[in-house]
Design a protein around this nucleic acid. Structure first.
Ligand SMILES: [Zn+2]
Ligand SMILES: [Zn+2]
Ligand SMILES: [Zn+2]
Ligand SMILES: [Zn+2]
Ligand SMILES: [Zn+2]
Length: 381
DNA sequence: GGGATGTAGGGAAAAGCCCGGG
DNA sequence: GCCCGGGCTTTTCCCTACATCC
């Protein structure tokens, strides 16, 4: 079941969406997109050195998926200057310029060697070399009958979708995009028959079937099908929160989390229940709420025949069966029947914490562990 | 029980990159 | 040299599940 998000502004009682808000609220000059431990008073949680590590290996050398987790030492060997190009909207976009870095003395580079994270940006394919392409994209003109049109940028022509307002710099991109409208999905998975509009996305999908997970976490044993998923997961070890709320300066590990949080400031409730018309700020909760109408109780207890509407009620209930397992891991909340089993389990956490601390030290990063994590470190010694 | 919020994990559309052919 | 486009990767966006606070 999927959730339909209402169009922004469809209802007058809705607050502004994040995008609407960005149009009128530019970033203050003294409010960067993220903060870095090296130069600001903020702790390492807000630093994104890690992303640099994960990105650099695409530079020149083809990546070996098995070694996607790059050692911190190589980070120091290959530094990239990541400068921020300030768009009129205040978006922070990543711009790499290695030629500049070669001219800078080492410590100058350190000051600027920060990744400015952005998962947002202009919404059409640009690939324009110029600086003002986002403006050009707003101009829909010069369309001809074979979908070709000449862009205001004289070097490039663009291809305009005849079914919506989007335009593309490549015929192939338009072809892929048009399939969203026509429903054509020429690339089919032989395992589950799911089909896709892009060949590359079929390749991504194939990895979701058991077997291939090329991106391995270097702190724990988890593996992922997409590099971005690994980047997000690694932040759970490092505590990095590169996405900063404009209103309250709170940091978030994913762009989507920041978007959801911003709704607490704006009052935006884009999700509406079609049975009772109530609105919610979270799509997850709308799903839960919808079940309350049907009386559906999909969460069944393994130890008795009770079932529950929400998972949290099942968890609550399962405590009545936990009596036989009184020893709880304070990190993952799992229960164990005795101290020995708990200690053995804790060591699985301890290894990843140890790797994390080593990583932090090798990056000269400050910060404190939570009491629970400190406890695990003591266990290891 | 129910609403709200924060967070981990995952799928895929959009955008970008690389390279070979003309 | 250059454009173009196929093939592929990366970025960005969005979704769902689950935990926790009130
Ligand atoms: Zn279209
Ligand atoms: Zn499949
Ligand atoms: Zn991990
Ligand atoms: Zn905030
Ligand atoms: Zn309802």
């Amino acid at each position: 079941m999927s959730v339909i998000k209402e169009e922004p502004g469809a209802d007058t009682d809705m607050g502004p969406t994040l995008n609407e808000f960005k149009l009128v609220h530019f970033k203050q000059e003294d409010s960067p997109v993220l903060f870095c431990s090296v130069k600001s008073e903020f702790k390492f949680e807000y630093c994104s050195l890690l992303d640099t590590v994960l990105q650099q290996d695409t530079h020149g050398v083809k990546q070996d998926p098995e070694s996607s987790a790059v050692e911190s030492s190589s980070f120091h060997k290959k530094k990239h200057l990541i400068a921020v190009k300030q768009e009129p909207q205040g978006d922070a976009r990543e711009v790499r310029d290695d030629t500049v870095i070669k001219q800078e003395p080492e410590d100058e580079v350190m000051i600027q060697d920060h990744v400015f994270c952005s998962e947002s940006g202009i919404s059409s394919r640009s690939e324009h070399p110029g600086n003002n392409c986002s403006i050009i994209l707003g101009v829909k003109q010069c369309k001809s009958k074979d979908n070709k049109k000449v862009c205001s940028n004289p070097q490039r022509k663009t291809y305009q979708c005849d079914l919506c307002t989007k335009s593309f710099t490549r015929q192939g991109h338009l072809t892929e995009h048009r399939r969203i409208h026509t429903g054509e999905k020429p690339y089919q998975c032989e395992i589950c028959n799911k089909s896709f509009t892009q060949r590359g996305n079929l390749a991504l999908h194939l990895r979701t079937h058991p077997g291939e997970k090329p991106f391995k976490c270097d702190f724990c044993t988890k593996r992922f099908t997409q590099r971005t998923h690994l980047v997000h997961h690694r932040r759970t070890h490092t505590g990095e929160k590169p996405f900063i709320c404009d209103f309250c300066n709170k940091g978030f590990s994913q762009q989507g989390h920041l978007v959801a949080h911003t709704r607490t400031h704006t009052g935006d409730k884009p999700y509406r229940c079609h049975l009772c018309n109530r609105r919610f700020s979270s799509s997850s909760y709308l799903l839960v709420h919808t079940r309350s109408h049907s009386g559906e109780k999909p969460h069944k207890c393994d130890s008795c025949d009770k079932s529950f509407m929400q998972h949290r009620y099942l968890v609550q209930h399962s405590h009545t069966h936990i009596g036989a397992k009184p020893y709880k891991c304070e990190i993952c909340q799992k229960h164990f029947p005795d101290q020995g089993n708990l200690a053995r389990h804790r060591r699985t956490h301890a290894e990843s914490i140890h790797k994390y601390v080593s990583w932090k030290v090798s990056n000269n990063m400050e910060g404190t562990l939570s009491p629970a994590l400190e406890g695990h470190l003591i266990d290891m010694q």
